[in-house]
Nucleic acid binder design. Sequence first.
DNA 1: TACGCCCCTGAAAGCGCTTTCAGAAAGCGC
DNA 2: GCGCTTTCTGAAAGCGCTTTCAGGGGCGTA
Lengths: 342, 342
Amino acid sequence: MQARTHVTLEDVARAADVSLATASRALNGMRVTPHLRERVLLAAERLAYTPNAHARALAGGAHRTVGVVCHDVSDPYFAAIAGGVMRVAADNDLLVMLASTFSDPEREIAYVSMLRAERAHAILLIGSGFEDLHWERALEAELKPYLDGRGRVAVISRHRSLRVDTVLPENRAGAAAMARAMLEMGHRRFAVLTGPPVLTTVADRLGGFRAELRKAGVKLAAADIVEGPFTRDGGYAAMTRLLDQGTRATCVFAVADVMAIGACAAVRDRGLSVPDDVSVAGFDDIPIVRDLTPPLTTVALPLQQLGERALELALTENPERRRRVLRMGGEVVVRASTAKLT
Amino acid sequence: MQARTHVTLEDVARAADVSLATASRALNGMRVTPHLRERVLLAAERLAYTPNAHARALAGGAHRTVGVVCHDVSDPYFAAIAGGVMRVAADNDLLVMLASTFSDPEREIAYVSMLRAERAHAILLIGSGFEDLHWERALEAELKPYLDGRGRVAVISRHRSLRVDTVLPENRAGAAAMARAMLEMGHRRFAVLTGPPVLTTVADRLGGFRAELRKAGVKLAAADIVEGPFTRDGGYAAMTRLLDQGTRATCVFAVADVMAIGACAAVRDRGLSVPDDVSVAGFDDIPIVRDLTPPLTTVALPLQQLGERALELALTENPERRRRVLRMGGEVVVRASTAKLT
DNA sequence: TACGCCCCTGAAAGCGCTTTCAGAAAGCGC
DNA sequence: GCGCTTTCTGAAAGCGCTTTCAGGGGCGTA
């Protein structure tokens, strides 16, 4: 698209018979005689002029672009968050560059590098956060110019040492609350369907749940923690394995709703019932879960708001240059996928 | 982010004690004495140099960026398509600029303009297509530089006159097939939950369904076509209205799965049963619908592939400069949300 | 009518990179 | 060892825009 096919400011200036400088000023709303301004605007309109964003950015003009990195836009969790980001972006006339890493840390770094090359105004990392200091160092190095500046990065997830503004879902507390809720409902035998443990999000949810059980003196056998990819099918497979090994759990906690959905399907496919034979709980409260049968008990996160707040955070100056942390969500929503044990 | 905080090629060249030109060549893999190349690469590494994508684009170098415009990323339909786009983008080292219009045609045009300003390699319009020639003219004007070039635009949806490469879901044929399937199951009284009629996608689905009924001599009363926003809640509200007005339909066809999901909820909330009291069918086959109870009968679209093919289309040269049209999907998948009428 | 001040316009520099164009260095044959 | 060709390197010219810096015109004041 770099062919001679684009109208330039010079073309407009010539058509309006003014200098380049004047044309630029007219287009950018600076003081120009109304008469000339009109001529320029008209010429621009007639020629269907679109300023070259690259030239503008290069010359130091405004360039309204933000970068967002997530695992997978097609996952309802990220889609919902992205929805919030998009809303704020639209309100601020920002163009969003979205990248899916498909959970590959290398790709995450590569994308951040590309966003840096694009000189994105702000960078948002959603659900990043790997339990890997080596990786975090690399990310930090990549993010350097942004970190030095005035806080134009925000993350949604916990990072071990990265000093950036954070919107933190209450993963640990939420999972703990879920454990408490299930204990109160009389459950004593649990199983957990977990995702890749290198993700801090997973670690926190699993950790919070376990800790609370331990506090209550309830054991969680290693065999009852089954790991799988962070997807519907991952949940299905994990639950199937659990069933295969003849688990005695009465309550299964999946660290993400999408996994819980798969788990429910697996239970049903065995001819068992949720919640009569086994209670299933999830995490996230993605929109669809209230329309399932039975509707899913889960830990609610205000997903759209997560995205909104994160972008707002990245967009507002941070004069004190201190890491701002916004904790959100974490309430247990009990629906019909979990039953009281009598 | 335009402060003096970024390392430039000049810095690298100086550090490596070579000229700018040599540094550029070394970094871009052109012929340079191995000895010098290594020095440059090392210097670049040490300084954490990231080329300025704007400068590069401006100077005519490669700039790997594509623009995607959709209604709302958080909608499962678009999310799934976007997933496909992301996959192909990742394979091609492309950065994706994603914009949500929230179904506002003005905003759609504004975004295309921004993408044009960014000199995006390719532009993808997903589910665009308004039944509004005035709008289409404006869009065409905005897209001009891309249309003149060698086919770097693709759309997923039908446009009336826009001459661009198209990945076309079989909306009309799919809806017709659904009508046939329902007729074969014995239904004779129908209702349709429809979206904004200005969307060609909606028009085609509604049109295909109606035409097939008419062909079979089955009437569809105007009162039995209820319109609502293209969302879960829109479907819920529409179905509620239908129920309120005492519809006698035995089968309700929603022009989108998300609406069908809302419709099912509305039916249940009335204490009625899907499919015993009323059959519900949708369109799209978004991933979640097979996990609903009952699983949703729908017209299947290979959503992810839609996105993949569209981007591939936009990325491949089109020497003959003819509009390429790829028709996809449209098979009826009968699940348990629809019942035979005896 | 003449002088000074202020605002507006135009020329030009530069943002960071790629690429052309010569010139320098190196390689070859005789 | 000389002169030619063949590489490879460095200087410089843009890419399209914003912005500084003077200069010029219009106006107010005496």
